[in-house]
Design a protein around this nucleic acid. Structure first.
Lengths: 207, 207, 207, 207
DNA sequence: TATGAATGAGCCTTCATTCAT
DNA sequence: GATGAATGAAGGCTCATTCAT
């Protein structure tokens, strides 16, 4: 994002970027360790090694802090998944699903603690990040993917199928990453999810 | 829940019960209307028609209030679902799944607003309700149900299957109750969930 | 205002009244000593001998504090002046003016320091007290008084005359109370004001 | 004010002067538009088109800023009035008074908004401008003027008369410029003030 | 000299909790 | 037991002022 052409001006810019990063990282840490209630502007500033004043130079208020963190995290995850979606277009349905789930699992492992806390605690604010926008994009892409494999899919309504896929997969991946039952490997669990989705999509019509 | 036979003691006890109920109801209302931030002990007490002092007679602190509400809600939901589980033991797998999902959907509709808020905003506290205990019980019962239908189920690991079932069903029911895609009836959505689960459990092994 | 019939409940009420009074008095003291900038809610509460919390039990915010002080002061002053105006209706023009000015001087001496600070510093807020209401009433009463003495007054426009009277008298009284020139007694100054007003009202038309 | 002949040094000096002017102008604008509370050093600097750092190069602190603005404004007004006073020495008492009042009215109209805000909100600081010095000078000049017309003035104490004149005239002009009663023209109001002062100064002794 | 990011003391306000009545 | 006024710690945020560049 930052073209490093002018070596003279870069430090300035990167100082700001570094500060913003430090603040968001501090927010994430405190959010994970102490929950939403522990995220105070003073605590964040202190942990980030800056003054409250600086925090307010980059974020207009406390909510913006959480929102920005959410956005950053969401973008990271979305990027991973969308990349997988793109790749999936050139594969068999089996491989597409497997690639997608594996990528999503991977995305969730990036910062699973943060992901969990954000998902659980962000409702405490009047939803701020345009999550739905990204979700909408993903839904469309998944519908496209399914349409691409229309031939082998028995489910009639692809949009409904995408809805079912997204929600069940998300919940399962969450559960698997955070509280996988003993004795089950992450790999096995991932395969089981793929198996479930595959079964759902290609289920004999009469069933 | 506790039928008091003695006419002398009942009023006292029921007074307390009534007050506790009023307080929890008030908490629920405020939580739904104004979110977690709106739940202040004073607001709850006022809405419940009692003094803050009285609130502190029944709940040692604010967290206990939320925890109790959570517990009450959880018990209500669990009761509905466990009842369905019991009934399901005497039905075909299809009917068992249908009954279970329908019951869960129904349970979510009891007080979906509260359920949503609790699930979304309760992470804000260090999880207090012994949710896992109930979840554990339910998991066991589901495993038992699956075992009962072992013959028609192709999934080898029933514990893993129960895990998959619970999480995907929960997420889907949530999504369906709260943000069902346009053009899809609640009934259709419910049937689709059943179809998915059935497909998963009875999927041809080779697939 | 507070009918002291029930000796049981009175203490409660008077406790509140006493607290409110203490808070307003503290505000006045701090305002006089340190100016508007020194009036912080914490400082006021401390000086009043109560907690900030209590301050906020009686005043919704800092501005309300200043507004209330202004109102209390304004009411005190207005009462004194209106009483003099009533008396003045039954006197000669000379005595009426003298009585009025003397009463106003007296009113300004009630708490001249506070009066001064309020007048100077209240513009700092978006005018809160309905001062204009009282001023309007006074203006009407003065016009009435002048009309009563119409015979000896040469100024044609009584409303304009009232305007001139009020503003010049107010400014002069202020100046006289706060920074009377050396060698001039308060009494002499007061008489001089009366003389000026009398001269204005009864000035020969040709002049 | 300081004409710089040297073409080499002038730019420097005038740069400073221009900057100071810009800063004071910005302060005035903000003070008028947003009141005392809106005057922050950052806001002033931004509006003036300079950095806060530069602001602090010319003014040691915020108070100095306000003080300087007050001084500048006071000097402008005083200049206008003193000029009128000088002219008035060569006129009849009537013309002298009329000229003086008209000049003062004019002076108040130069920047009545600023004048108003300064007068109202400046009490918020520990009066900083040596207003009294200027006031003292004016008082002396007015006494001189009155002495010049001693023959037609019946008021015995000229110093007291000057005091009365200044304060009543100032208050009336203020009132007239800012809240003149409906139906009264500025000219008529000005004449009425002159009439009042004339009446006061030349009032028959017995009255 | 000019700049403006950084600082941090301190302000207003809220709210969980207590305790005298 | 019930009450609710009182408490005061703590949080979000502002802004005068400084100082490295």
């Amino acid at each position: 994002m930052t073209a490093q052409v002018s070596p003279r001006k870069a430090p300035r810019q990167s100082r700001s970027l570094a500060t913003v990063k430090a603040i968001l990282d501090a927010t994430a840490h405190i959010l994970i360790e102490g929950g939403f209630a522990a995220v105070t502007t003073n605590a964040v500033a202190e942990r980030a090694g800056v003054s409250v004043g600086s925090l307010y130079q980059y974020f207009p208020n406390k909510d913006a802090l959480i929102t920005a963190l959410h956005a950053r995290h969401g973008e990271q995850m979305t990027a991973v998944i969308l990349r997988a979606l793109t790749k999936a277009m050139d594969a068999t349905l089996d491989d597409a699903l497997a690639g997608l789930i594996e990528a999503t699992v991977e995305a969730h492992r990036i910062d699973s603690a943060l992901h969990c806390v954000l998902e659980l605690q962000l409702g405490a604010m009047d939803k701020a990040w345009p999550e739905e926008e990204y979700v909408g994009v993903m839904e469309e892409r998944i519908v496209a993917l399914l349409a691409h494999h229309r031939a082998v899919i028995t489910t009639p309504d692809l949009k409904l199928a995408a809805f079912m896929l997204m929600h069940s997969a998300h919940a399962l991946i969450h559960a698997v990453v955070l509280e996988r039952p003993k004795g089950v490997s992450l790999k096995a669990a991932t395969q089981e999810i793929v198996r479930m989705l595959k079964g759902y999509l290609t289920q004999p019509v009469s069933a």
